[in-house]
Amino acid sequence: MKNTKLINSEISYVVAKLGHFDRLTICDAGLPIPAGVQRIDLAVTEGVPAFMDVVRTVVSEMEIQGVELAEEFKDVSPELHEKLLGFFESVAIERGKPIPVSPVSHEVFKENTQKSVAVVRTGEFTPYANITLKAGVVF
């Protein structure tokens, strides 16, 4: 058994296969997932698992070049948006590398999920709780 935080075999496999600039999306329970993109559905019930729990765990095993999120997130769900930005600020400090955050319109965000290697669906019911992680390199 793995001795790390991320024990979900499907997500672990996807993260292990990511190359530079590949994308992995983590979303709330309502984001449409494009046909042809791998769906990893973790949603059990409202709030389980929580968006931030999944983000923290995936980021613990992934080199992050940047993140993309919907610009509407900030206005519609400001508390979770601030928590997410604070988390990435702390990760950037811990890793000694900036993590650029790119806000785009929700429509563009949904279109861009077509470029993701996989989409991880959580049980989050907070509107716009969606993020795409762009893989970096460790050197």
Rank of each mutant, 00 (worst) to 15 (best):
E46G: 13
G123D: 09
V54I: 14
A92W: 11
A16Q: 15
K115D: 11
V119N: 09
G86W: 01
S102L: 10
V108G: 00
V67L: 13
P98M: 11
P98Q: 13
P49W: 11
V44P: 03
H106N: 12
A16H: 14
E71V: 06
V14S: 10
Y128P: 07
S12W: 01
V104F: 09
F125C: 04
S60R: 05
E63C: 06
K115V: 01
S60C: 00
S116V: 12
G66K: 11
L6G: 05
V117C: 00
H81Q: 10
A92I: 06
A70V: 00
V54Y: 08
A70K: 06
D22P: 04
V76E: 07
T113E: 06
T113L: 01
K134V: 15
I93K: 15
E124N: 06
Y128H: 11
G47A: 07
V67A: 07
P34L: 10
E82R: 14
I26L: 00
S116H: 00
P100I: 02
N8V: 02
V117I: 07
V15Y: 09
E89Y: 02
G86N: 15
P49A: 12
V120W: 07
L84K: 05
V108Y: 01
Y128F: 15
I40G: 00
P98D: 13
E111W: 02
L6W: 07
L85F: 00
E68F: 11
M62C: 04
A50M: 13
H20M: 05
D28A: 03
T126D: 09
V14K: 07
P127S: 01
Q65D: 14
D75T: 06
P103L: 11
L42M: 02
I11N: 01
P103N: 09
L18N: 04
A16P: 08
F21Q: 15
V37G: 06
D28M: 01
P100W: 01
F73K: 03
Q114E: 13
H106A: 07
E68H: 02
G66Q: 03
V117Y: 02
V15G: 13
P32N: 02
S90R: 10
F21E: 15
T126N: 13
D53I: 05
P32Q: 04
P127E: 05
A92T: 03
